[in-house]
Design a protein around this nucleic acid. Structure first.
Lengths: 136, 136
DNA sequence: CTGATTGCAAACATTTTGCATGCTG
DNA sequence: CAGCATGCAAAATGTTTGCAATCAG
């Protein structure tokens, strides 16, 4: 009902596929790619075409409901737009964890003054080994 | 001759295309995508197939001579591997500028302790408006 | 001369577009 | 019932692979 409301607020129609995808993304705390979303939908017996998922993502990103993120493997992932955060990407197993702490102090003012560049946003990802892979 | 030496060090053969691409990437201070590299080669009348450029990039990245970078537009760019730095990406004109200052203090130790994640590297990109676009 | 490098064709993966059908409001 | 949303087919884009011809060492 949370999402039903959000969809209506954005003048979008409430469909089973849309509800399912939004709930899916919300449950997972890591960005999902199109294939992963499709697999989950299929597992839940919710019929939905690949193209529809692409179109949903486009719509949701436009409306600011979902954020498109981009790691190093040539495809996009999507996550619910929320509080700004960063990611820990395991180079071994590919698992992705969100970290919600600042953990960094980006001096946007300094960049602005030094390079005359007006920053609107930034991306920061950490690559390395997750706990399980480090212990192998 | 700098590059000739580097290629030999890495047991790679010195070919016109390889020399041209390395000099090209060195001259530009921003990462280039495959099409841009091809265009420059073509402009310099150096015959080279697209596939060859992809393969060169793969080889150079493996050898640590070149770094693959990934912004938000679904394709890879390549730059000479050097001192760690970050990028300013203009959302208006797409221009990319490298910034070589730290400008950020990432607490890798804190992340390691808090999330049990062993960081090997990170990516940081700033998106916004470059000087020219901000003045339009 | 030997094997690394290249070119061409074709395959692949991801994402986008066109159009007719169907469902939401 | 009007128009948004979906499915299917097909195209566009970026990247990879197979194989034979070529060039560097």
């Amino acid at each position: 009902m949370e999402w039903k409301h959000t969809l209506k607020e954005n003048r979008l129609r409430v469909t089973p596929a849309r509800m399912a995808v939004l709930e899916l993304l919300e449950k997972k705390d890591a960005p999902m790619d199109i294939q992963a979303i499709l697999a989950e939908l299929s597992a839940s017996s919710i019929p939905c075409d690949q193209v529809t998922v692409y179109r949903m993502m486009e719509t949701f990103v436009e409306k600011g409901m979902v954020k498109q993120v981009n790691f190093e493997d040539g495809k996009f992932r999507y996550e619910i737009e929320g509080e700004h955060h960063h990611h820990l990407v395991c180079e071994q197993c590919g698992s992705i964890q969100a970290i919600h702490d600042p953990c960094l102090a980006v001096s946007e003012t300094e960049v602005k003054q030094k390079y005359n560049f007006q920053i609107t946003r930034h991306h920061l990802e950490f690559f390395g080994l997750c706990q399980s892979c480090a212990n192998l």
